[in-house]
Design a protein around this nucleic acid. Sequence first.
DNA 1: CGGGGCCTTGAGGCAATTCAAATTATGTGG
DNA 2: CCACATAATTTGAATTGCCTCAAGGCCCCG
Lengths: 250, 250
Amino acid sequence: MQSDPKHFDDHPLAPFVQRLRLHCSLGDADVREILDLPFKKLNRNQYSHLLRDGDSTHHCMVLLSGLVERYRLTSHGERQILAIYIPGDPLDLEHLFIPLADDWLQTLRRSEIALIEHDALRALNFRRPAIATALICSLLVDASIFREWTINVGRRNAKARIAHFLSELIFRMRAQGINGKDIILPLTQYHIADATGLTAVHVNRTLKAMQSDNLLSTKGGAIRSIDWVRIREVGDFNSRYLHSNHEDDE
Amino acid sequence: MQSDPKHFDDHPLAPFVQRLRLHCSLGDADVREILDLPFKKLNRNQYSHLLRDGDSTHHCMVLLSGLVERYRLTSHGERQILAIYIPGDPLDLEHLFIPLADDWLQTLRRSEIALIEHDALRALNFRRPAIATALICSLLVDASIFREWTINVGRRNAKARIAHFLSELIFRMRAQGINGKDIILPLTQYHIADATGLTAVHVNRTLKAMQSDNLLSTKGGAIRSIDWVRIREVGDFNSRYLHSNHEDDE
DNA sequence: CGGGGCCTTGAGGCAATTCAAATTATGTGG
DNA sequence: CCACATAATTTGAATTGCCTCAAGGCCCCG
């Protein structure tokens, strides 16, 4: 951003750098090294699988555009979404260290993904300790988010769960500079249900109730905010667990 | 283990090495380096806090004996336990990379903890990449456990939740060589409730039902197994998410 | 204009909660 | 070793949040 703004902003991996910088400081030299990483661009349609439980890979994925979910299944086929990834997020950084996948990764809409070879990342980590630290920070913030999801599902009622889920997504998108006030989320109510540990029917009823509370609107399959401040309150959302240096005013 | 078994087994940090070796391979030289780490021993009574939300520290804690919980609170004071730590587990390794704590750590019984300075660990990581990798693996396995807890709380009924929770603890304890068949867990039903997203009253009723199913017994405030194999089935427990090289037969 | 997702609504049921109180353990000091 | 205080477990009764099952409607897309 400081050294060569134009080159930086145009670069496909710019959102990735921005994400890393939310939690860690990276010098210009580090940033340049990341942007110089060799990568392959992957285009995927909505609802295509990127990684399966048990897979092993030799590259890491970074989401460039679109939306991706991580989920796990019970043996009875019940689904729990464990994370929603937005542009800039690394999707499977952990497999730089752990060989086998234990979750599923699937696109929620048409998405672009950067594939970076493990070897290239490892070499970079070795050369640039600050980058290694940034990657690990990214993983650890994700872990903090996993914990927050556990308390969300375990200790909040339907309305608060949904509100918290939406608040987090909005906060993270804003921190990444995605969208402004009027956020459109391409999530079906089935997805919200699987992310919050509810059924789609109950999500529907709860969203209706939130609409009549003037908290949000659900026109045309997308969720639009009416009052994010109150949604946060309802969701008992406090951004501290995100360890983000992005200050979200309003 | 290979080089100097006696010295190794007697060493207070031996369980820590064993824990790391569950997920990563460490050479003898690496092991020796870990055992040579300078540390201070801390003794704590039951129910004393080790770390508070918002704290920042300059050392890492490793549990040597006893039991520790990690939890988070909603703004309404509802508690969700996010992890149970057993001897050998590092408790707050993430603060090697992230400055501020976002959870609470509390002993569940009289415990011994090793305090290792961040600087010492960082120096070791630099000197021994295999150890750095092992520490990160440990963090990533913990993250996988967090995700499993989310699906447990989000997508399983009371009986399965409790069974899964117990199965995981037993599995991990066995992998660490703690106890044999007859496991005694010093957990109150309030703790089980806070770990599974239930109320203590319902945990009580569910445990009673499990007793009459001949799954377990709850004599004297401790939970004893009757049939761990069936408890695992009831809990839909599959150890794969633990990424452990410990083969648990039976 | 027809079909398949997705959303919506209703009725009924049940798992888990809430509130309250009794009982049983656990621990402590005299 | 007993008496007392406190914590933990147990039980009951009533309630409710969320689920299940089922059907109907909407809307996008070919």
